[in-house]
């Protein structure tokens, strides 16, 4: 009887431990205290902008990179967002002029944490900023190294090559 009760108690404790392991593993309720990017914090309360931060976005199933995603609800908010991200008026006009379809995108390198500044001369000091005019969205890949920049830039290119080779 006593042994049975002890085993029941042990089982309850182990179950609790298993649940705790799952919670920590999946980081439910942000139990590991992951901090979002500065850009997310900057835009999360801005009206007209849907801001998101993904801690570990897998690129091409090979590497995970933190990503900030900013999407404007309308053209005016998108224009304002591009201006805040340091895109000059003529570049925004150019962007719209040459947008052909919903696959158009403009990919640039900007200094880490400063998408409004021009590219840093040391390539590894930059992160990848991709603008999608039709979707009114901007993705900032918070890359740490030059290798990560290469992986982001080549991710889809390599995928297409693989696809074309397979058909």
């Amino acid at each position: 009887m006593r042994k049975t009760n002890l085993l029941r108690l042990l089982l309850a404790l182990l179950s609790l431990l298993a649940v705790a392991t799952v919670v920590v593993r999946l980081n439910l309720w942000n139990i590991r205290g992951v901090q979002p990017s500065g850009l997310y914090l900057q835009y999360k309360d801005m009206p007209g902008i849907q801001a998101s931060f993904i801690k570990d976005k897998y690129i091409n199933d090979s590497i995970s990179i933190p990503v900030t995603l900013l999407q404007a609800e309308d053209s005016a908010a998108f224009f304002m967002l591009l201006k805040e991200l340091g895109k000059p008026d003529d570049m925004i006009k150019y962007m719209y002029k040459y947008v052909k379809d919903d696959q158009s995108r403009f990919v640039k390198l900007n200094p880490k944490g400063h998408p409004e500044l021009p590219q840093d001369s040391v390539r590894g000091n930059n992160e990848v900023v991709a603008t999608f005019p039709v979707q009114r969205a901007v993705i900032i890949f918070h890359t740490e190294t030059e290798e990560q920049i290469d992986i982001v830039m080549k991710a889809n290119f390599l995928k297409k090559i693989k696809y074309e080779e397979s058909i």
């Binding site: 980081n27 942000n30 590991r32 992951v34 979002p36 997310y40 835009y43 999360k44 309360d45 902008i49 849907q50 801001a51 998101s52 931060f53 993904i54 801690k55 570990d56 976005k57 897998y58 690129i59 995970s64 990503v67 995603l69 999407q71 696959q103 995108r105 991709a130 999608f132 979707q135 969205a137 993705i139 991710a155 889809n156 995928k159």
Partner: peptide, 23 residues
């Protein structure tokens, strides 16, 4: 992935990011 968002659901954010990364 741990996702922070000020509006859209976690699923919507992941779907949109997948769609954009594919482009």
């Amino acid at each position: 992935s741990t996702v922070f968002t000020n509006g859209p659901s976690r699923g919507e954010v992941l779907a949109l990011s997948d769609q954009l990364i594919a482009l």
